[in-house]
Each structure stands twice: as structure tokens, then as C-alpha cells.
Simulated scan of single mutants.
Amino acid sequence: MAQGGHWKLVTSGSRQCSTPALNPPAMVIGNRYALLDTGEKESLPTVKEEKPRTPKAGRSAATTANRKGRVVVVGDSLLRGTEAPICRPDISSQEVCCLPGARIRDVTEALSRIIQPSDYYPMLLIHVGTNDTAWCDTERIKSDYRALGVRVKEFGAQVVFSSILPVKGRGPGRDRCIMEVNAWLRRWCRQEGFGFLDHGMLFEEGLLGRDGVHLSRRGKTLFGHRLANLVRRALN
């Protein structure tokens, strides 16, 4: 996976997606929002460019009621290829922001450009952390997650963190780091009132790409539908 460098925002793609929806993922939700299932048929997403703006706090309930609701899925390059299943059925209110090479601190900084003050956010789903584990500094990772948690609470959204996916061929130290951080992340989300989507070791066998970090085509399909099912169930 690329480290550092520039990243860009990637929103939904305009291609067809013929892969059928898979079974909803096992998940732990630690906040007050109920998750239900839905069987609605969906339209396909189109491409659009974002023009980020800085959010403003202190909106009244009446103002929020009149604003457009947007669901944002934000994170590192593992989100690439998940746009089609996530952005269905409402491409105007559900979007994916993929930040290639991003670490936890990058997502924290990017939120001020992604979140728009004219909208309100019923759900914010975050998947990041793989790049941070390359240094196996668990204390720094936890500190960065805490700072991100403080930031996302400003938006008044239902926040869900997606667990760090396993990697292959990067040494036992990194494997232990990922397992330790995920165990802590589960506890921390429960304490802070965030949701936690636990992928476990599902993506370890046959779903990783040749580099051992990114997902294969089949892995991307499964990952995209797990995130999409969570979004749909959380909003209905």
C-alpha cells in the first residue's frame, strides 16, 4: 500500500454492478440506532465531484430538519471499488470518500473538507487504520483514534468504525498489532457510543490481492456489500 503522498476524494462511479447483495455482516452496534433489514430495489450511482466546505456547529433542530441527509463512508484505499453497492439506492445522499494512502490522522483532517454545513449526517462510516499498523505502534494508533472520535462527535451523526482487515506476508508483528488494535477498537467504540463493524478474519483466505494488503476482486465485492448492507440496515 502506498504510504504518504497526495490523496484525493473519490465519489460514486457510474458503472453497472451485477453482483447480488450478500448476507448482512455480523456487527456490534453500541449506540442508540436500531438496525433493520430492507429489500428495496436500487438505482445505480453516477459520478460527481465534491467541493468540500468547512462545517459549522450550533445548527437548530428546525434547520437540521430542512437540510439534506447524507451518508458518508470515508477511509483509505481499501474503499476503492465499493462505490456502486454503497451508493445504491440513493446516489444523491450516499457517497464514498476514498483517500488513498490515508492514515487515521489524514481522515481526521479531511473531515472538515468532506462534511458540508448545508447537510446533516444520519450516518458516518469510517474504515481506516491499515496503513498505521505498518509501524506497529499501538499506543499511537489508539491516540489517533481517540482524536478522530472527538472530531466525529461534532457532527451529530451515527458513527460506525469498521475493523482493520488482516494482511498477509507482512510478519507476525503486524498481525499481532492488527489483532490488538481491533480488540481495543471494539471496547473503545462501546465506551464512546460508536458502532463497530467487526470483519474478524473473514478476508484472510483467498480475498486478499497479491500484495497481501489490498483486496482481490472477489474481496472488494464482499467488502463493498458488507458495508452497503450495514448502511441500508442502519437507515431503515
Rank of each mutant, 00 (worst) to 15 (best):
T82A: 13
T82W: 01
T82H: 02
T82S: 14
E83N: 08
E83W: 05
E83T: 15
A84L: 04
A84F: 04
I86T: 07
I86E: 13
C87G: 11
P89E: 05
D90E: 04
D90N: 06
D90A: 01
S92T: 15
S93E: 14
S93F: 02
S93K: 05
S93T: 15
S93P: 11
Q94W: 07
E95T: 15
L99P: 02
L99F: 10
L99M: 14
G101H: 02
G101T: 09
A102P: 08
R105A: 14
D106W: 04
V107G: 01
V107F: 02
E109D: 13
A110E: 13
A110C: 10
A110Q: 09
L111A: 02
S112A: 13
S112M: 03
S112E: 14
R113L: 11
R113V: 01
I114G: 05
Q116N: 12
P117W: 12
S118W: 04
S118I: 14
S118R: 11
S118Y: 06
D119Q: 12
D119I: 05
Y121H: 00
M123A: 15
M123V: 14
H127M: 12
H127D: 14
H127G: 05
H127S: 14
V128W: 04
G129Y: 08
G129V: 03
T130R: 03
W135S: 03
C136D: 02
C136T: 12
C136L: 02
D137H: 06
T138F: 02
E139D: 15
K142A: 10
K142E: 13
D144A: 01
D144Q: 09
D144M: 01
D144E: 15
A147Q: 14
A147V: 15
L148K: 06
G149E: 08
V150P: 00
V152T: 12
K153P: 06
K153F: 11
K153D: 14
E154L: 10
E154K: 03
E154Y: 08
A157T: 09
A157H: 00
A157R: 00
Q158V: 08
V159G: 08
V159S: 11
V160N: 02
V160W: 05
F161Q: 07
F161P: 07
S162Q: 10
S163M: 08
S163Y: 13
P166M: 12
P166W: 07
P166T: 10
V167P: 03
K168R: 03
G169S: 01
R170L: 00
R170V: 01
G171I: 09
G171P: 03
P172Q: 11
P172K: 06
P172W: 07
P172E: 11
G173K: 01
R174K: 08
R174F: 00
R174T: 06
D175Q: 02
R176S: 11
R176D: 11
R176W: 03
C177H: 00
C177I: 06
I178A: 03
I178C: 04
M179Y: 06
E180D: 11
V181I: 13
V181Y: 08
N182G: 00
N182I: 04
A183W: 02
A183N: 09
A183V: 12
A183E: 13
W184V: 07
L185D: 07
L185N: 12
L185F: 01
L185W: 01
R187N: 12
R187A: 09
C189F: 03
R190K: 07
G193A: 03
F194Y: 13
F194D: 13
G195Y: 13
G195F: 09
F196L: 06
F196N: 06
F196Q: 05
